[in-house]
Design a protein around this nucleic acid. Structure first.
Length: 478
DNA sequence: TACATACAC
DNA sequence: CATGGTGTATGTA
């Protein structure tokens, strides 16, 4: 069993994709982006040197201000479990250890092991393409409740080193170990004084070992002065490794200057292409292009770019943990249909499911949003505000159905709305007024209203939905 | 406020 | 045969 080279992998993926509606839509999106970039370059060419110089000076002033706020006093760690879901499955089914395997389904993989990666099988890839790359691939359906349980064990290790650790997903967290280092320096130095680097590395190595002892799974870590840098660093010695970046401006600048912008969290495919068109592929190329960037991007992006170019980032983890939830949603993909009754039924089902999730969290919301995706992968959202916050499935469902009907009516009869995805989201959230009595009222109301409303709907053959199975929440990629 | 886009995981 | 689900931030009008 050999791996493939990149050219062969791309060829197989291209053959499997081309002609599909998914691929066509992707190409359209790319053309749109190309046009946008072309326009951007046109704008750039028309800039006078004077204007550019002025913009550069403004940006340099911002940079100076940011530089003044540089905080090198904290030691931040980003910990990332190695191929988390796949590692859990391999641990529990040893026969999976020596074969190419991935966790996911036919439509999407969440992660793959290193043997499968040699064949080009990656997170985010549909299972049917993965099988073409690697016919021997073993596909394991996800067990989210198991991963959650493992994650809780890992969290207990994190808590030793920083009780205020910030969990970013099931397999990833930031820790501020500054206080732990100070409090425990003595325990880690054998005879002589230990410098910060040795101390931080020893502590993180020990933490990773504790994770491994507790879970039989390995983790990688990055250690740096802020979360942005720590996150990049955790990727450098993966799997089962760690990387320390000294908290020293010179070391940070040397590091950041040669770093590809795409490695920065928040720089995705689109931004990468835009910046590339301007000749920027490395973080070190941002500062020489300050003026250009200022004239092409929003203030908010500028601040972000400046901070990246200086290697600045978040040092206060409470900024990750303090916020309240802003929205809650449920969506589902299905084989494309334009059957009105089926679609309406699904919206009702989703509303009931959403109600369950909201009740669990004690949330009510004021803004209902319907999300649709056509069989050609065109996404749309339509929303409507309610008079008062609710989580009542019938109220949410009624509004969502209304929004769906409005969309369907926009289509000509010979070309009805044909969808492959529906979603319902609630936002403008607040806490549910929680007394047992209030909840009871809500529940009885729900049944009343459902009965009444079901008879009133035009597609009245949709019935009250059976209890939907509790859905596993999922962050799909590792 | 409403909608689209970009991004992370 | 055939490409996911949940949540946040931001730009724009």
């Amino acid at each position: 069993m050999q791996g493939f080279d990149a050219a062969k992998i791309n060829e197989i993926i291209r053959k499997a994709s081309e002609g599909s509606r998914f691929y066509q839509h992707k190409q359209q999106a790319q053309q749109k982006l190309d046009a946008k970039i072309k326009e951007m370059l046109h704008t750039a060419q028309q800039m006078s040197p004077q204007l550019l110089e002025k913009a550069t000076k403004k940006m340099e002033a911002v940079a100076l201000e940011c530089e003044a706020g540089r905080d090198l006093s904290r030691t931040i760690v980003h910990v990332d479990m190695d191929m988390f879901y796949a590692a859990v499955e391999m641990r529990d089914q040893p026969n999976l250890k020596d074969v190419p395997m991935a966790v996911g389904g036919n439509s999407m993989l969440s992660t793959s092991n290193y043997i499968a990666r040699k064949f080009g099988v990656r997170a985010g890839m549909p299972g049917f393409i993965a099988r073409q790359l690697c016919p021997a691939l073993v596909l394991v359906p996800p067990n989210f409740s198991k991963y959650k349980a493992v994650s809780r064990v890992v969290e207990q290790v994190f808590a030793i080193y920083d009780p205020n650790y910030a969990m970013m997903s099931l397999d990833e967290a930031y820790l501020d170990i500054t206080d732990y280092m100070e409090a425990n320096a003595d325990a880690y130095q054998a005879k002589s004084e230990v410098d910060n680097e040795t101390l931080a590395e020893a502590i993180v190595r020990e933490m990773r070992l504790k994770i491994q002892e507790a879970t039989q799974l390995t983790a990688s870590a990055g250690i740096a002065a802020n979360t942005r840098l720590a996150k990049v660093c955790s990727d450098l010695n993966k799997p089962n490794g760690q990387y320390y970046l000294p908290s020293d401006t010179r070391a940070i600048m040397d590091f950041i200057n040669k770093l590809p912008i795409r490695k920065i969290s928040g720089i995705g495919n689109v931004t990468e292409q835009q910046l590339k068109a301007l000749g920027i592929t490395l973080c070190g190329q941002i500062r020489p292009n300050y003026g250009l960037l200022r004239l092409l991007f929003s203030d908010c992006s500028l601040d972000y770019f400046v901070r990246i170019s200086l290697g600045l980032g978040e040092t206060d983890l409470s900024n990750y943990t303090s916020g309240e939830q802003k929205s809650i949603s449920t969506e589902t993909t299905f084989t494309g249909t334009s059957c009105k009754q089926k679609l309406m039924q699904m919206v009702s089902d989703l509303s009931i499911e959403l109600h369950g999730d909201m009740k669990k969290k004690g949330l009510v919301g004021k803004l209902v949003t319907l999300k649709t995706k056509t069989v050609n992968f065109v996404l749309k959202t339509r929303s409507m505000a309610l008079g008062e916050p609710t989580s009542d499935p019938e109220v949410m469902g009624k509004v969502a159905r209304k929004l769906l009907i409005a969309e369907m009516e926009k289509c000509p009869v010979d070309e009805p709305l044909s969808l492959r995805l529906l979603g319902v989201r609630m936002s403008n959230l607040s806490e549910e007024a929680s007394s047992g009595r209030a909840k009871q009222t809500t529940i009885s109301k729900m049944f009343e209203k459902q009965t009444v409303s079901a008879g009133r709907e035009s597609s009245s053959n949709y019935c009250l939905v059976t209890e939907s199975v509790a859905r596993e929440v999922q962050a799909f990629h590792d």
